[in-house]
Amino acid sequence: MSIERAHADHVHEHPTWKQYKWVALVLTVITAVEVWVYYTPFKDSPLFRPTLLAMSAVKFAIVVMYYMHLKYDHAIFRKLFVGPLIIAGCTLVAFLFLFGKVWIG
């Protein structure tokens, strides 16, 4: 339960330049696919929404993990971010349910 003290010098390894550019490329490609899919007949498929949501979630996670270097940082930051994110997510889903936007069962 206790929060570990970071190493005195705490030089956490950051992603390198090269990685940063790869990440940017991946993000650009996903964005391109998202927009492209929007103009294909797949748009009317029942899988369109889940696919887009998944792509968006992946982009979200990549930026948070690499650009916000949460993956490389102290665990306390992860807790400070993921906890509220979960509560926000649950609240959002509850709202959609309460206002009849999604149905259970």
């Binding site: 306390i76 400070l80 971010f81 509220p84 994110l85 509560i87 926000a88 997510g89 609240t91 959002l92």
Partner: peptide, 14 residues
């Protein structure tokens, strides 16, 4: 700043 970002999650969530 991370606590602030956590808080912002709720603002944009709303």
């Amino acid at each position: 700043i991370w606590a602030f970002i956590g808080s912002e999650c709720m603002l944009f969530g709303s």
